[in-house]
Structure formats: C-alpha cells, structure tokens
Nucleic acid binder design. Sequence first.
DNA 1: AATGAATGAGCTTTCATTCAT
DNA 2: CATGAATGAAAGCTCATTCAT
Lengths: 216, 216, 216, 216
Amino acid sequence: MTKDLNELIQILEEGEQKKTPKQTQILKAAVETFAEKGYASTSTSEIAAKAGVAEGTIFRHYKTKKELLLSIVTPVMVKFTLPVFASHFAEQVFEQLPQDFEELLYKIIKNRYEFVKENHPLVRIMLQEMAFHKDLQEQFRLVFLEHVYPRFEHLIAHYKQEDRIIELPAPSAIRMIMTSLIGFIFTRFIIAPDLEWDDEKEMERTVQFIMHGLSK
Amino acid sequence: MTKDLNELIQILEEGEQKKTPKQTQILKAAVETFAEKGYASTSTSEIAAKAGVAEGTIFRHYKTKKELLLSIVTPVMVKFTLPVFASHFAEQVFEQLPQDFEELLYKIIKNRYEFVKENHPLVRIMLQEMAFHKDLQEQFRLVFLEHVYPRFEHLIAHYKQEDRIIELPAPSAIRMIMTSLIGFIFTRFIIAPDLEWDDEKEMERTVQFIMHGLSK
Amino acid sequence: MTKDLNELIQILEEGEQKKTPKQTQILKAAVETFAEKGYASTSTSEIAAKAGVAEGTIFRHYKTKKELLLSIVTPVMVKFTLPVFASHFAEQVFEQLPQDFEELLYKIIKNRYEFVKENHPLVRIMLQEMAFHKDLQEQFRLVFLEHVYPRFEHLIAHYKQEDRIIELPAPSAIRMIMTSLIGFIFTRFIIAPDLEWDDEKEMERTVQFIMHGLSK
Amino acid sequence: MTKDLNELIQILEEGEQKKTPKQTQILKAAVETFAEKGYASTSTSEIAAKAGVAEGTIFRHYKTKKELLLSIVTPVMVKFTLPVFASHFAEQVFEQLPQDFEELLYKIIKNRYEFVKENHPLVRIMLQEMAFHKDLQEQFRLVFLEHVYPRFEHLIAHYKQEDRIIELPAPSAIRMIMTSLIGFIFTRFIIAPDLEWDDEKEMERTVQFIMHGLSK
DNA sequence: AATGAATGAGCTTTCATTCAT
DNA sequence: CATGAATGAAAGCTCATTCAT
C-alpha cells in the first residue's frame, strides 16, 4: 500500500531506535559488505565475522538475511527521495517557492549532494539492489509517485506559469532535471570518486547546464 | 593492458563464431536469467534447465560460470561504448564533423537508442554486474579512456573553437552530455519501459535540452 | 620449516583437545574409510553417512577434506616416528644405551609393534597417502631427518666403537635395521594380518636376523 | 582362479601385441599420471590431454578406466614376481641351484634391481594401487602363492639341508630375505632416489646383511 | 541477549562414459 | 579408428537458518 508521510516518518524513527552494540556492529558490517560485493554475494557468516559476533546473533535481530537488507535499504530510500519535498528542508524551501528557479535547483542539488556524501555506501546498496528486488522497486515507485513526483510537477507548473521555463511536458522536464542531478551525484560518488572534483563549481555548472544547456 | 581497435574487433568476431546449437541455447538462457535475477542469484542448474541442456554441457563450453558472464558482457561492453566513435558509424559521421552540433548529438543519441533497443537485456546485465566485478570496471575504463573519451574531447574542442558551445571544461561538458543521453536511454528501457513513449519526440527534446536547457 | 620437539608435542596435544561428539564420530568414520578405500576414493558424503552427521558438519570442523586428512595423518606421523628416540620411552631406554645391542633392538621393535597394533588403520593411511601427497612426504622427511636419523646415527656409532657391530656406513646399517623392523610390522599388520602369528617369537627371530643373518 | 604359467606368459605376450600409436601414447600418459597422482586422482580427461588424443579414444581401447589400470598393472605384477623363479632367468639360475647361497641371493637382487630400474613408475603404480584394489591383491596372492612361494620354500629347504643356513621356519626366512631385498629396492627407487647410491656396493652389503647380520 | 554446533538443500564444478559424425 | 559434444551423477563445499545452552 501507499504509505502516507506519517508512516514513512515512523519508519525513519524506528530505524534510529536504541540498538544493542552488537546490532550496530552487524549493521555496519552488513553495509560495508553489501556495498562492496552485493547482497547476493555476501554471506551471513562473513557479516558475522566482520562484525565480531556469532552467526546466530544476526538472526536474533533480523529474522532473515532479506530483512537485514530491508532494514538497511528502506530508510535510505525514504531519506534519499523524500526530503526533497517533505520534511524540515522542504518546508523551509519549497513551500515558499523561491522566485529564482536556479536558486531552487541549486538548493536541491546541494542538499542531495550532502546527503549522498554522508551516505554513499547506503545509496550504493539501494541502487544496486533495486535492480534485483521487485519489492524494492515497488517501494521506491510508491514513495516517488506519491511524494516526489506530484510536488515536482506542481513546481514545474509554477515556473512555467511564471514564464521562467520553456514549454515542455512535465515528465520530460522532470526526467531531464533528475537525470542531470543524479548524473552528477552518481559520477561524483560512484563512477569516479577518485578524480579531483571542485564540487561547488561543478554543482553550479550543473545548474547552469540545466538552465541554459551547452549552446552559446 | 589497453587493447587496440583490432583486438577489440577481434573480440566481437570471436563472439559470433560458429556455436553449437546447445551453446546458443545456453547463452540465451543465461542472458535472460542474469538480466532478471543477476549473476550471483542465478544458478547454473537454472540456466541448464531453461536452456534444455545438461548442467555439464555449460561447463564444456565455459570453464566457469564467470567465464560465461564475461563471454556475454565483454562483447556488449565493446559494442556499447565503441561504435559511438569508431567503426563504420563513426567514420561516416564523426570524421567529417557536421557543422551542426545538434545534428551530431541527434545522430549519436539515435544510434545508441537503436542499439539498446535491440540489446537491452545485455546492456542491463553489463550495468548491473559492473557494480560488483572490478575486472569489468577496469575493462570498461580501458575502452572508455582509450577509445571514447579522447574523441569526445576532440569533438568538444572543435565546437568550442567554432564558437558554437560555451566555455566549459571538457570533462564537465562530456559528463553532462553523456548524463543526458544515458539518462534518457536508461529511463526509457530500464526504469520505465512500460510508460508510453514518443521516442522520436523525446530524443529531440533531449537534444534540445542539452543545447539550450530549460530556461526560457 | 623444521619443527622442534616442543612444537611437535604441541601438535599431539592439540589433537587430543576437547572435541564435540560429532567430531569424534567424523574422525572415526574418516579413519575407517580412508584406510579401506584411500583418501581420494572416499567421498565426504560417505564419511558423513557413516558418522551419522550431516555433510555440512564435516566442513564446520575441517575447512577442507584435505585438512581432515592432515588432522589424522600428522599426529600419527609424529607418534610413529618420534617416540623411537624422543619422549618418555626414549629417555628411559636410549639415553642410557644398554650394553646389549640386541636388547635395544628388541625394545624398539616391541615398542613400535605395540604402537602399530593399536593404530594400524592410522599407520595404513599414513603410508598409503604419503605416496600421493608431497606435503606429507616433506613433513615426514623433516621429522625423520631432524629427530630420528641423527639419534640412530649416534647409536650406530656408539656400538661400532664398542666393537659390537661390523664396519658399515651408517646409512646402510640404518636402512637394514629399519627395513627388517618395518618389514616385520608391515607384513604382520598390513600384508598378511590373517596368518597365524607367534608375535613374540617372530620379533625375537627378527632381532636375531638383524644381528646374525641367516647363514650358519 | 589360479593361472598356470602358460596363461601368465600369454598375458605378457598380449600386452606386447601391436598397438596403434595413439594407444601407446595413452598408456605412456596413463603410467606417468597414475604414478604421480594415483589412479583415483587421475582423470581420463587429463590422460587424454597428456596423450594428445580425444577423450573418446581412450574408451575405444579400454572399456573402462579400471581396465586401463589393469592393462598396466597386470603385466608388471607378473613380470615383477614371476621371473624370479620362472622364465628364462629362472631356468638358468634356479633349476641348477648354485652351491653358494650368497651367489644366488646376489643374482636375485641384481636381477630384480635391473627390472625395477627399468620400470619403476610401473612398479610404483602396482604397489600404490594394490593398497586399494582387492582384485589386484588377489591377483598378486595367486601368482605369489602359486609360483613364487613354493619355489622359495624349496630353495630354503635345500640350503637348510646343505647346512648352509640356520634352522628357521621357512615363512620367516622368506619374509626376512624378501624384506631386505625389497627394502633395498624400495629405498633406492621410491623413498630416496635422489641420494647418491653406489648400487653395486649396496647390493653386496645387502646380501652380506642377509647372510651374516650386523653383529661382529 | 548471545553463542556456535548442527543442519540439509543447494551451489559450482568434475568425471567416466556414450554416441553421432 | 578417432573425435569431441553431450550427459547426469556425484564430488567438495557454502549457505541461511535453527536451537540447545
């Protein structure tokens, strides 16, 4: 079922509830290993060893290996997609749409950049595993269609009406914006994290590109 | 080591050498299953069953499961990245750079679109598995840095000099173009293949976006 | 590397550490089957069945089938070769070389006879597998050259000096003694265990043979 | 069934019948590999590869892998044990028992030494595999009990009667002689072939040892 | 809460053998 | 005679999960 905001926020809060130290070690070990080798190629015994706990301990906290994966991916998925429009951040920025579309884009890109910077192993796992797990895809689809897309659409409509952006179907516009945004973050943190990046400048360039393209 | 064009072309030709019928069935079954569930979650017994051969038959043709994966991924990787600038296609289009940058972009996007349209399960496997296999990443890196990036760079320089595109570091420009291009193809075939797409129009829009952005 | 006595004794002690009952059953089944059919022709599933445990249980205690073999052979090898001159037995008998060479021979042959009598399946495995495993050969070579041969040599020198045995290169003398000794034990327990043997008498005869040969 | 001399001789002759070149290559490859790794650890594909023939070719000449083993071991077994008393050699030497027992022993040891020198991989396979194959043991038992032991016994009786050797049960005497003889050959060719050996001298010493022992 | 021995299904790979060419 | 693709049973080993302690 589609989950409403309150439910999603609850998920986040549950995820940050008190954990035993062992549980924290398990999660840390699982994240590291899932990110590196993928869920399917990671064995619970490897996680246990890396976490310094007994094999059985993992199953005391997570009924199955899959549940362990979900307990990692679900919160990231929510945090990754949601805060753009909901939450503290959204309230401040989006409800009172800034006049300047560029300014808004920059705030979004900066905000998501910061988030991925802090959480790239988690984001990596999310992206990798969404390819294989239908339930994760569905989860994502729900959050996206319910909480992200409509607001994005509304936003596009607004700036169109203000005559600040060109006539273009919303889905196309959204795709292009997200593609550029995620394209930057993905290249920055996943494809070529070892290159020397001038992050501020590159974000500005990306915003400029979204606004004006390459042509002179 | 970096492979030169002749070697890469040889890889492609080897892949199309005479195969026993059983071998073809195996490849077909492997592609289907790897695309759907991922390499790590696909068992050789499953492939054998789907291909209608004995499990031993797989290992008569491919020493290991990994070799089977590589025999699928390596040719796609070459075909996916290379033809953009090398080969028949490149010779006609890129060597005699069209005056119009837009026209060029359109030809590229169209050409890659057609390729992925014909081969999306293969492309999907390539993308999915590159996340987990260092050797695939390295293989890609070599082909890209040796055969794709330099020509792209040359092309950017050319249009800059002709004063058709803005001042921007080549890596950034290349990233933005590729991001938009791949973003379209990825959305079209992987993320939302079930949406109704007006492909021609969407490719035009994408080219427009790369050229002029969203702002009015 | 050559192992010193303390290390070898440690190997023996480790082998007798606390084992789970299942582990004991596994070892028993493995010894029986290896002795009968040889290591290479024994499957882990057969061992598991005979031991009444799941196949996985074997690999919980021994990382590989080879490790299971080594955990059986290494201690026998040490016990088989070492005690002749080291250990409790050696201290009593060899350090205070008996005047009578015959008496000494008899004590050795008797002592080794008793050992093999108690452990012939183990000895059998050791001999059989040394033929195929270079590492076992090397292990044996080290123990023999470091701990057995030198003392044997010293002993030969002693009795030569006392004018009790004939002039003969030590290696030849040692070979003849060991050949006769092992020849008896091997015939007794491996080649023809079903014959009726008067063991005491036969050991005496063997000692007589080593001393005086067959000629009248 | 016990085989009489004629049958055994026939086995030898059959073994030397005309073979195709491929068959010879197969046998050569099989002997090399069986000697090194043992029958059970040698795969037919490995033999085929080493012989430079197709896998199927082996089974054209030998119905099963076991038959290939037997075609190697049976002739060696006959040649190894039989010629001592039967055959050309035996006729010359044993039928007309030399007065000197020493001389006889020397002739035997020399003759068997030469044989093993020419055939040690074969002898090695025979010894190794007799440990695991009941049928080989039985084959050996038959040849030995029928053709070797009785003549040996007769020989012992003769020299006893001539008062040249001591009073001793024949089985014990035979065991001691064979033990010393085989002990030398085994040490020389299997255990320590890399040592520097003065073969002539060592055979003399061995005969001396059998006759007079070590005591002064 | 934590352990780790035990499980048995399932994995990839090897193998002796067959058979159409 | 010779080949080598094909087989399917069986090999060694791994795995997620359970449960008595």
